[in-house]
Design a protein around this nucleic acid. Structure first.
Length: 1023
RNA sequence: GGGCGGCUAGCUCAGUUGGUUAGAGCGCCAUCCUCACACGGUGGAAGUCACAGGUUCGAGUCCUGUGCCGCCCACCA
């Protein structure tokens, strides 16, 4: 057994989280509770962690993601499943390399080329080792019950083998190919990036209108063609100018569309559409004839002269040119624009690449060679102006593509890349969701998944990086197929394909690298590129289980039970896991996908370190404890998209919270608004700032959960102090007091609610049910009511047993969300009450972690007792209200009469002693005949009129004011009901029970009003 | 341009299939250090449920439209 906490008598009145967290986490690890082995006699429950990037530390989003997974894993483990939570981290190719490269540049003023491939990769491994440890440590501090023995890394040998086999299989099946394509080029990192790694940002720019001369214009023909562009330097790569093949028809189509729109447009927007229609008519008159002329010239094969580089380019007819826009003509730069690229392919145009990988212009740019894009733009514009070919410059806002990683503008760039063919794979992944083999929760996210996959765009998987899985392909530029057959005929782990664009053989090796001299007479050269990070992440659910080996783990744990993630990687990651899983293993990777909310700051902005509004889970855990953090996050996990979390600085001097504003969140030092002292923030760089104590960024949204932890702690502490003479034993129903039956009824309901909520990922519902039961029912009522019996030598035995059992069950239900606190209480309880339970007590498990999940004992659900309690609680509230509004000290006893039906009296009279203990109020009489004392305060409740004897206590004025208010309120309520009941159609059409309910509640209101008026009359006499 | 989510008390959010007088936490006011808990107890004030129509005996809840906030996808010579 681990070191025991303090003796029960010395337990502090506040729960201190730090020490139990350390103590119990190592206890669980030592006991091997986190470890799972395949066991066909038990049902598996498996989750693979979304592997955090080794780029940096975990943020609050990770905390949420992993809290939810641990809640699921821990509850399923308690439910008897063989639960495996597979942990690990992701090498995050481009992100990690970018971080390390940036640091290299800052600290040593070196580029990756100064260091070389091998050295750089070494540096990144060092970084990885450091951050991986940090990340895993954070997960442990959170209490995550991962099977650490199985920890994987996307670049480790097991995962690498899966990557090689996957690539090999796709290559062999012709689902992977190499080709020249226009890609998003990051000129800073000098790699292609996928569309998903690109974001758009509006920047101020210009729209330049340029003229290209027509070669040998015939009479009647224009001498120039006008085009417009936001990127004038790309004209150096132009290989055509396009005009629509049937401009008149295109204008007709545009007009028809606008007319259709006009029909269904509201009056407000009509003017705008009408304006557009007028503009269109104008164009028909002015521009259309020119366009028709140009179209005819294009058909005749007429040429233009591309200025500056003096190249002849054709005028082509292509539908990409929209006659309703600009001049109606468009320049075509196939090598540097995605749309132009398509036009180029359609029209068989040459593709002139004018860029070097570093973003400078190459030899194709003629005199502009060597310039950066920005410089070239200036020069091109100036030179065109010099030639009199610049018509106009407009200011314009441009949505410019940026690389997510380097934050530099993306250039469309023609490069050789590897692609995965998506048609068949994407379809298989779509089918899995459409036919229900995979269920996405909430279901609305399925649409985006299907839409994205439906595009079936090939997946560019090569990256010109050094950190990642290197593509297992070798080139043999001089070899013939006969050479290949000779060398590899007896090897089924080598396959080859013709690379049409490169005019050479591509050789793929399944597992072992090919040596340079593996092909006699030729030197093999390996592809330099590495694979997109998502390629290895896509394999995560099966690679971590040992695929391609048919391991017992793969057979037992796959498909996994659920994937828990956030919505931004549904396409990037979830979809790709599905298609590789189906392709490699032949089955879906998980049965369900749960998409949880995103956490935003108080302004609705995403949290990030670069904004200064990021909350570090470690700071939250330091201040509030891991349990409070986990509970709070789960409590916030509703079905909505986002969760707002106002963020505060915590003053290190006085401990108070200071609201974080957009202003102060970027300051290096902040002055506390409470104590006036200053503290430093993450921006502190100057020594005088850094020397100040650091003020962590936290959020008061965790206070609710922290307070809840404390409440539970104290409820447990109370229970423990009452168990000196505890003896386990069966409890007969006949021994149960009213409050016992009530709390057991509620407990059964809550057990059922929590179990169902967790099963359907309604985390917030589960947490709310637990919070409300624990605080409002168990603590506020049950514990208060049982106090008396605990002091009675006869009644205490049953009371202790029920109290202990209820706490025990509650603790088990709370354990998945609050592992540390519940274990601390569980172990304390083990000392005071080692055997627990009602029907047949058994000795408790060695840890709450492995204790069985409570089963709702529906026999104990008792609607009558719950109704009785509702009445009781109402009377109690009424008595307390009178005490409060009459300003009667809590210790001053009061007496009251309760006028009610005989039936109600039968229910409530037996509870008289609780009115004494909980409200210091003694009942004098119950029933229909109860008469108000001479001087009394009155409160009317549903079915009960309370009269509190106030002889010598009353504050008449206060009472009159209160009663008048009450009279008005009742009057209004009655008016509403009377109106409703006098409405014939309501009485006729509403269900009979609803009408009956309305009638009886009107009677109640009448009774109440009569009593209020009677009291009021009496008061008026005395006033 | 297409799609998704949100708009309920000062703040952050619940509100199940339409059905009594719309709830919680924080904050606020009053009061109490009552022998588990002041990270607590008790009581209180505070809401034309974004707006406009409609369906219905009855709408925070269903339908249509509008506005604002946020997100995603596509496109922008």
């Amino acid at each position: 057994m681990p070191q025991q906490p303090s003796p029960i008598k010395d337990l502090p009145t506040q729960y201190h989280h730090a020490e139990p967290q350390r103590r119990w986490y190592s206890f669980w690890e030592e006991q091997g509770y986190f470890h799972s082995e395949p066991d066909p006699s038990r049902r598996p429950y498996t989750i693979v962690i979304p592997p955090p990037n080794v780029t940096g530390a975990l943020h609050l989003g990770h905390a949420l993601n992993n809290s939810l997974q641990d809640i699921l894993i821990r509850s399923k483990r308690m439910q008897g499943f063989n639960a495996l939570w597979m942990p690990g981290t992701d090498h995050a190719g481009i992100a990690t390399q970018a971080v390390v490269e940036r640091r290299l540049l800052q600290e040593e003023k070196k580029s990756r080329h100064d260091l070389g491939r091998e050295k750089l990769v070494e540096r990144i491994w060092e970084w990885k080792n450091e951050y991986e440890q940090r990340i895993l440590g954070q997960l442990k501090r959170m209490g995550c019950s991962c099977d650490w023995q199985r920890t994987r890394f996307t670049l480790d040998p097991v995962c690498a083998r899966a990557v090689r086999h996957t690539f090999f299989g796709l290559f062999r099946d012709k689902l992977i190919y190499r080709g020249k394509r226009l890609v998003n080029w990051d000129t800073f990192l000098q790699t292609a990036v996928s569309d998903d790694e690109v974001y758009h940002e509006a920047v101020a720019g210009h729209f330049w209108h340029l003229r290209y001369p027509v070669i040998d214009p015939r009479p009647g023909e224009p001498t120039h063609v006008t085009i417009a562009t936001t990127r004038p330097e790309t004209m150096l790569g132009d290989t055509a100018v396009a005009v629509h093949p049937d401009p008149a028809a295109a204008l007709d189509a545009a007009e028809a569309e606008l007319t259709a729109k006009l029909a269904e447009t509201s009056d407000k927007d009509r003017a705008e559409v009408e304006r557009q229609l007028a503009a269109l008519a104008e164009r028909r008159a002015t521009v259309l004839p020119t366009l028709i002329g140009l179209r005819d010239m294009a058909r005749a094969g007429r040429l233009l002269r591309l200025p500056l580089v003096d190249r002849e380019i054709p005028l082509v007819a292509d539908e990409w040119a929209k006659p309703e826009l600009g001049s109606g003509c468009v320049k075509i730069t196939p090598a540097h624009d995605p749309n132009d690229y398509e036009v180029g392919k359609r029209q068989n145009l040459p593709m002139v690449n004018i860029l070097n990988p570093d973003g400078t212009l190459n030899g194709n740019a003629g005199p502009y060679q060597g310039l950066t894009i920005a410089k070239a733009r200036e020069r091109v514009v100036a030179d065109m102006e010099g030639l009199g070919l610049l018509v106009e410059v407009e200011d314009r806002e441009i949505d410019l593509a940026h690389s997510d990683r380097s934050k530099t503008p993306i250039e469309p760039y023609l490069a050789d890349q590897w692609f995965v063919r998506m048609d068949r794979l994407a379809q298989s992944a779509m089918d899995a969701v459409s036919d229900g083999r995979i269920k996405i929760v909430p279901s609305r996210y399925a649409q985006g998944y299907l839409d994205w996959l439906g595009e079936k765009r090939d997946w560019p998987v090569s990256r010109q990086l050094w950190w990642g899985h290197r593509i297992p392909v070798w080139y043999a530029p001089t070899a013939s197929e006969a050479d290949l057959k000779r060398a590899f005929a007896d090897r089924d782990d080598v396959v080859w394909q013709r690379d049409e664009e490169g005019d050479r053989w591509l050789i793929c090796a399944q597992e072992e690298d090919l040596a340079e001299d593996a092909l006699p007479g030729h030197t093999l050269i390996r592809d330099d590129d590495v694979l997109d990070t998502w390629f290895s992440s896509a394999l995560w659910p099966h690679s971590t289980l040992g695929w391609p080996e048919q391991t017992p783990e793969l057979k037992y744990y796959y498909p996994t039970s659920v994937l828990v993630t956030s919505r931004d990687i549904i396409t990037l990651w979830v979809a790709r896991m599905v298609l590789t899983g189906l392709n490699n293993v032949g089955d879906v990777p998980f049965r369900e996908v749960f998409i949880h909310p995103k956490i935003l700051d108080g302004y609705g902005e995403t949290m990030s370190k670069s904004k200064g509004n990021g909350v570090d889970p470690l700071d939250v855990m330091d201040k509030f404890g891991a349990d409070a953090m986990r509970f709070a996050l789960a409590y916030l996990t509703t079905e909505t998209q986002d969760v707002r979390m106002p963020v505060e600085f915590e003053c290190p001097h006085c401990g108070k919270l200071i609201e974080q504003t957009k202003k102060n969140r970027v300051l290096p030092r902040v002055k506390c608004t409470h104590c006036g002292q200053e503290f430093s923030t993450q921006w502190a760089s100057k020594p005088e700032d850094a020397a100040l104590p650091r003020g962590p960024v936290v959020s008061e949204r965790f206070e609710l959960a922290r307070n809840f932890c404390n409440k539970l702690w104290n409820a447990a502490r109370f229970t423990l102090t009452k168990l000196d003479a505890y003896a386990a034993g069966p409890v007969a129903d006949s021994e149960l007091a009213v409050e016992d039956r009530w709390v057991l009824s509620r407990l059964a309901t809550v057990t059922r609610q929590v179990t169902e909520a967790l099963d359907s990922y309604r985390f917030a519902d589960a947490m709310r049910a637990l919070y409300e039961f624990a605080w409002d029912e168990f603590c506020s009522f049950y514990v208060e009511m049982v106090k008396g019996r605990l002091q009675d030598p006869v009644q205490c035995t049953t009371a202790e047993r029920v109290l202990t059992h209820t706490l025990d069950t509650l603790i088990r239900l709370l354990h998945p969300a609050m592992p540390f606190l519940t274990e601390e209480i569980w172990q304390l309880l083990a000392v005071a009450a080692p055997a627990r339970g009602l029907d047949s007590p058994t000795s408790a498990a060695a840890s709450v972690m492995i204790a069985p999940w409570p089963v709702a004992d529906l026999r104990r659900c008792d609607a009558n007792i719950e109704a009785q309690f509702t009445g009781f609680q109402e009377v109690l509230r009424g008595l307390r209200e009178i005490r409060s509004r009459q300003n009667i000290a809590p210790k001053t006893p009061i007496r009251f009469a309760a006028r009610c039906s005989a039936e109600t009296a039968r229910l409530l009279e037996p509870m008289s002693r609780y009115f004494e203990s909980l409200a210091g109020a003694q009942a004098t009489v119950w029933g229909p005949a109860a008469a108000p004392p001479e001087t009394h305060a009155h409160v009317s409740l549903k079915g009960v009129e309370l009269f509190v004897d106030l002889e010598g206590l009353i504050d008449i004025k206060a009472e009159i004011v209160r009663l008048e208010k009450e009279r008005d309120r009742l009057g209004q309520a009655m008016a509403v009901k009377e109106k409703k009941l006098s409405n014939a159609s309501f009485v006729e059409r509403a269900p009979a029970d609803v009408v009956a309910k309305e009638r009886s509640s009107l009677v109640d209101l009448q009774t109440q009003l009569a009593a209020v008026e009677a009291t009021l009359a009496k008061m008026a006499q005395r006033a």
